[in-house]
């Protein structure tokens, strides 16, 4: 069995530049995001940006968000400890910090941090059109018979750009700038959101998934925003150019 790779981003939203920054760069097909409890409840696919860790080393699970391996995830395997100094050292047993959305009424904040958020939308009961953000009157048929729905978290990137300015004027979060995209949701609406991930990953037609990122930490809670991040696989339409 070969080596494991682990991303050492301590907490989402904490500047990646301050993490140990040893990149293995391997393209991985399976990523398991370690929960604070030590279990891995989330899987997706993304480029590993963490360090190479040898078998037998142990990883401080409270500080590791993703553990990956070329090949399949070995279920039930004990996470190896690793010796690279990490950014946070919070106790594994500690309760997850409360997460508060930057603005209310836009997206869900699941209790389980391994679950992706969903967008708070509206469905017209008369014509079936769906909308984001929430509204009372259907913009298409003008009916007031509308109902709350949750949309996403997956979508297809319709277009994107990369803004050459610090994100929210906060150089820590994205010093070089930030991506912005328009995303077509399978339910119909086209939404406009900041993008997470590196600019090279953005491509028209690419599948993206909504995630919560910590914008800032306050005493009692973390303030989170929703961003779409490119994910591999399905729904990627070919480039016309």
């Amino acid at each position: 069995m070969s080596n494991f790779h682990a991303t050492l981003e301590p907490e989402r939203g904490v500047p990646a530049a301050r993490s140990p920054g040893r990149r293995c760069g391997a393209r991985t097909t399976d990523v398991a995001r370690a929960q604070r409890s030590g279990r891995h409840g989330y899987s997706g696919s993304r480029r590993c940006s963490g360090s190479r860790i040898g078998i037998g080393e142990t990883i401080e699970t409270s500080t590791v968000l993703a553990v990956c391996r070329e090949g399949s995830w070995p279920g039930g395997l004990r996470l190896p400890q690793h010796r690279v100094p990490v950014y946070t050292t919070r106790d594994v047993a500690q309760e997850p910090r409360k997460r508060i959305p930057l603005a209310a009424g836009e997206f869900t904040v699941p209790d389980d941090p391994g679950q992706p958020p969903r967008l708070l939308g509206t469905r017209c009961e008369r014509c079936g059109e769906q909308f984001y953000p929430r509204r009372v009157v259907c913009a298409k048929c003008l009916s007031e018979q509308t109902a709350d729905v949750e949309l996403g978290p997956r979508g297809i990137l319709y277009s994107f750009t990369f803004v050459e300015m610090p994100f929210f004027g906060a150089p820590d979060t994205a010093p070089a700038g930030y991506g912005v995209g328009q995303i077509d949701l399978p339910e119909g609406p086209r939404v406009q959101f900041p993008l997470a991930g590196a600019r090279e990953e953005f491509r028209v037609g690419r599948a993206v998934e909504l995630e919560l990122d910590t914008l800032r930490k306050e005493t009692e809670h973390d303030v989170v925003i929703a961003r779409f991040r490119p994910v591999g696989g399905e729904g990627n339409e070919p480039d016309a150019s």
Partner: peptide
């Protein structure tokens, strides 16, 4: 800029 990206595509 997103108009431009889409147009380029």
């Amino acid at each position: 800029a997103m108009w431009a990206t889409r147009r380029m595509h």
